[in-house]
Design a protein around this nucleic acid. Structure first.
Lengths: 198, 198
DNA sequence: TTGCAAAAACTAATGACATTAGTTATTATA
DNA sequence: TATAATAACTAATGTCATTAGTTTTTGCAA
């Protein structure tokens, strides 16, 4: 009971990531992938459940890596520093792996257990990074959504060249993060002013 | 010199939007569109330059509509009120027309003159809406990018079901906007504190 | 009224793709 | 050394987009 050892999943994913990052996610086809791996496309079905299966695996792979770089960014930090490094790590990942980043958003099946686990872990990580702002109850989760919106929005628009203006992107990002953080501090101040006097 | 009067561009775009909004942008194919219009797919080439041409037209069409609803949202308003209404109009558009909204981001050719014009007009509109914050020079443009990042990020993640949490989306959005606005005010305060004392 | 030119819509054909069915080849272990 | 498991293969089908070339319609000029 043992077959020939040709392809394996890591090799396939690596090749797929390379195509995605250099040519775009749409160019990741079973045909282009098979050609790159010097194999006939039906052979890929032995490792992956068709094109949609490949995309799902790619999504999980990307989510794992994204979570990893985000985790590395926040260890040993807190408050503004933690959030800033988290943000920088996020956009750096999106810049370094545009196709893979794309896959994490377009491909994932929300029902997939692995996807749910990774999403949960990511939320937990960001909640912890936001601890310093003393957000009550759901407020922390809303803030996680907000931060993610802003990070994804910036990364996504940057990738699509959606910013037509001749303006330094890093400055824009820095300022956006600063504004958001200033807002968080202000919200914290307001919450205190509201609870203390009573 | 006159042909038969069958299809026309508005009819085609309307049908394409309907498919995009109900089944997703990927489902807008010349085949599906032709079927919906009760025509053979090569006939569409008389009105549109293939699939990519259709997508470009769809992008322009969407950008026009988006600019329109944003314009309506800010007329007669200023400051936080203007920004809030602008934001609400943006996400409302994305919610009402998920496929068309998608097209405005994925399809447009940045070289296209029409696209550039619409993008420019949109930037101008938002810059005007942000006048109350007295942002200096490039700061206003950076703020436009920031606001757009946050609006697009939220809309995009909402559409993809990227928010796994069982939490009210409108509250999240409201809070995100509040935080951003509080941040803008704080930045304005800081800028004043920095210039005045000198 | 008639005929023509322009343009829309058509048929036919090609090539890229995903996918399935069924075959061949390889290799670890019994 | 034989075999069972499984990877990789060939062949075939169906869906697309796209191009070439044909037919049809219709406003206008003669």
């Amino acid at each position: 009971m043992s077959p020939r050892i040709g392809l394996d999943l890591p090799t396939i994913l690596q090749a797929a990531v390379e195509i995605a990052d250099t040519r775009g996610l749409e160019e990741v086809t079973l045909a282009s992938l098979a050609q790159k791996l010097d194999v006939r496309s039906p052979s890929l079905y032995n490792h992956v459940n068709g094109l949609s299966g490949l995309r799902s695996k790619l999504a999980v792979y990307g989510l794992e890596q994204l979570l990893h770089v985000m985790t590395q960014a926040v260890v040993g930090r807190s408050g503004d520093d933690a959030v800033r490094e988290l943000g920088k790590a996020y956009v750096a990942f999106a810049r370094a792996h545009p196709g893979l980043y794309d896959a994490t958003l377009r491909a994932p099946d929300p029902q997939d257990e692995e996807v749910r686990r990774l999403a949960g872990e990511t939320v937990d990580l960001v909640v912890r990074a936001l601890q310093a702002y003393e957000l009550k109850d759901d407020a922390a989760l809303h803030a996680v959504r907000g931060l993610r919106s802003l990070l994804h929005g910036f990364s996504s628009l940057e990738q699509r060249g959606g910013f037509g203006l001749p303006l330094d992107l890093d400055v824009s990002f820095q300022l956006l993060l600063d504004t958001f953080l200033a807002g968080l501090h202000e919200m914290k101040r307001r919450a205190k002013a509201e609870s203390k006097p009573n």
